[in-house]
Design a binder for these strands. Structure first.
Lengths: 207, 207
DNA sequence: GTCTATACTCCGATAGAC
DNA sequence: GTCTATCGGAGTATAGAC
């Protein structure tokens, strides 16, 4: 997999396929999914616009590979963040919101890329494995809280992801620009918000 | 404002400008901001692709007009929803999340359109008035809760909007498609999540 | 105020040389 | 495996007829 030859004089790359995937993240972080294009990725790597088509049949297949990588890496960072959050199941689930915000702020590839509508019809088994694993990990973290049913766990995951994705999306759209907030600031707020909504039971104590 | 002449035989419209704005919402709801184009709106109204440029200098100016309308209408629905939510300030603020989800599900124009990055440089005073009014309304609803400072009110608004926008965004991306959830279902979940995170103080009671 | 027609740019994708 | 060259399509925007 890795390019064993240090210097690759021929044309540009030893492993254009991998370089395309990596460069796609940079493009996504800068321009978003909307303006993602094969031509732009090729420009970024200073190869011709035709070169990527030797490695991917089309734009969507490249995006599918990006989705696969993102699902794998995001899941790893979520696991790491929840492990670092300590033993409380609610803290562990809330930590995933922070991991999500930081990952997407850094790479540009969030759920809108991982589960992009244009990928649904694309039967990429590797991608589906990784996205399934990501969802499974999240649901398990939710199930460890006082969630009473699978349905409730799923809805808890959805709420947590919604918070994280909402903050991320608004951050990417420059909504927090006037505050000069960093990604870590936003991540912290997302964790706090997620933590609050994970334990609604405590609210009943008010009465 | 309204087309007083019932039938307008000449070409296509009595008020193409207004028709363009209205049709833009439909396009946004179906295709999203990403694929929004002047040409597509023109097609939808069965006018030539050149016609819109008699009313708007370019794509961004049309989007700015859409943003203005969306900010005005969304604010009105938020006010109505919070008034319908009763006297509790937390309930009133949480209701805005539901109003947001329903409005965006119906029209396709959320904060990503109202505060679209491409509009920042466009000095449209009418748009800025309406967006300011929208934000002010939200912050006032937040200030009515036990928020202790302006900064805390703003962050409460941000959290509420993040939840609503996150649910909306995931809904638009088809994330809840397998559940066959309706927009009202999602809105209800957004309200519940928002309600939970607005009163974090109750959590302290656990200890 | 809307039309037709057109120029320009960008992207997706393919053909064929090397 | 990458190149150059090219086609077809879509979008932005303008010019000029009506």
């Amino acid at each position: 997999m890795e390019a064993s030859v240090a210097a690759n004089r021929a044309y540009h790359h030893g492993d254009l396929r991998a370089a395309l995937i990596e460069a796609s993240f940079g493009l996504l972080a800068e321009c978003g999914l909307q303006r993602f294009s094969v031509a732009a990725v090729a420009r970024r790597l200073q190869v011709s616009s035709a070169a990527p088509y030797r490695h991917f049949p089309g734009r969507d297949h490249l995006l599918s590979a990006v989705s696969t990588t993102a699902a794998r890496d995001l899941r790893a960072e979520i696991v790491a963040a929840s492990d670092a959050a300590g033993p409380d199941p609610a803290d562990r689930l809330a930590a995933t919101a922070g991991a999500y915000v930081r990952y997407v702020a850094r790479t540009g590839a969030g759920f809108h890329v991982i589960f992009a509508a244009e990928l649904y019809r694309l039967p990429d088994e590797e991608r589906r494995e990784h996205t399934r694993a990501l969802i499974t990990t999240l649901v398990e973290l939710a199930a460890a809280t006082e969630a009473r049913s699978y349905q409730e766990s799923v809805q808890l995951v959805e709420a947590t992801i919604a918070v994280a994705h909402g903050y991320t999306s608004l951050y990417a759209d420059g909504f927090f620009a006037q505050n000069a907030s960093t990604a870590d600031d936003i991540a912290a707020r997302a964790v706090e918000a997620a933590r609050n909504l994970i334990t609604p039971g405590a609210i009943e104590v008010r009465n």
